[in-house]
Structures are given as structure tokens and as C-alpha cells.
Computed example of a mutant assay.
Amino acid sequence: MSATFTHINQDGKANMVDVTAKEVTVRQAIAEAYVDMSAETLALIVNGQHHKGDVFATARIAGIMAAKKTSDIIPLCHPLALTKVEVNITAEPEYNRVRIESLCKLSGKTGVEMEALTAASVAALTIYDMCKAIQKDMVISSVKLLEKTGGKSGHFKAVE
């Protein structure tokens, strides 16, 4: 694995990578996050009894919006013209948790890993925000890139 830092210039200063000469390819990234909570909190969400409304719908929209704004909140990220953002949220009552999976896609010169990770993270944070009045000790965990395709580095798939 190369230890070259692409966001540091020859003077050791942070800079945005120049992608001008890179080839436009279809790029896609999938990320996930989990929110662990009590069975009671999860049941309120799943049964539609949460006093703030549809938690999953709100978190899904927040994740999509966050993916579109990634370059505004992560320094040195390029603003991207995303062509697809999908956020899927699944209750896993057997583990007292929620699983969030995000997918981001575009045709462009730079990858969409940060957008997918941001979408999953913000969806998880939104679930926490909407449920914190009921349970403050929820845990957001395992935010990670599952897979990415396209670009010079090719295909990556996380080892399970």
C-alpha cells in the first residue's frame, strides 16, 4: 500500500487534489452505519408510535441531503454532481439496532466514497437526534465503506 498523501502539496500544506487530467468513469460507493438502541426505542420507531413522526423517512432524507453537501462539510472534498443517492434503513430487532446502507453514484473524475460515508453517518445522527429524548445512550457504530467501483484504483470490497 502506498503511503503517498495526495491532499498534501510539496510544501506540506493541505490542498485540494487536481483531478483535471483524470478520466471520467462511472463511480459508485456503498457505505453502512449502525445505531444500537433499546428494544423499546426500536419498537416505537418500527410501530410508527414515535412522537416526532417517521424517524426512518426523516433520516433517509437527511442522508440524501448530506451526500449532496459533503464538499461543504469535509475539507478538500470536490463538489460532485451526484446522479444517484439512495439511503436504505432496516430495523434489526434481533440485535436491537438499525442498519443504514447508503449508495452514491456518478460519472466523474473523483470517487464518491466520502458522499456515501457522509450519507450513512448523517442518517445515523438523525436517528439519534430524533430519539435522544427517549434514549440518550444509543450508540452509532461501524461506519464503514462496504464497496466502491470505478476510477483508477478499481474495485474495492470490504472483507466481512
Rank of each mutant, 00 (worst) to 15 (best):
K136I: 00
F56E: 00
M16Q: 12
V35G: 02
V112D: 02
N96K: 03
A3E: 11
G12F: 12
V17M: 12
V122N: 05
L80M: 07
L76C: 02
K84R: 13
V17W: 11
E94H: 13
A119T: 13
D72L: 06
A120G: 05
M37K: 00
K132M: 08
I134H: 06
E32K: 13
G53E: 09
K68F: 01
V46Y: 01
L82C: 04
T70P: 00
E92A: 06
D72N: 14
G151M: 04
T90F: 12
L125I: 05
D18V: 13
V139Q: 08
S153E: 09
K105Q: 15
T6F: 13
S102D: 06
L44Q: 14
A21K: 15
R60M: 12
S71A: 15
S107K: 07
T41V: 07
E40M: 09
Q28W: 03
M65P: 00
V139M: 02
D36E: 05
A62W: 10
G108Q: 03
V17T: 08
A66H: 10
T58F: 07
L80H: 09
I8H: 05
K152G: 00
K157F: 07
G154K: 10
G150I: 10
S142P: 01
E40C: 05
H50C: 13
K132Q: 11
R60Q: 15
D18N: 15
T4R: 02
K144L: 12
F5T: 02
R60C: 09
S153C: 08
M138T: 04
N88P: 00
D137P: 11
T20Y: 12
V159C: 06
M65H: 10
K68Q: 08
H155N: 13
L117E: 07
K13Q: 15
L44E: 14
A31E: 09
K22P: 04
V112F: 09
E92N: 08
I140W: 11
S2L: 09
N88K: 10
L103M: 10
I64G: 05
K152L: 03
A116S: 15
C77E: 06
I30H: 13
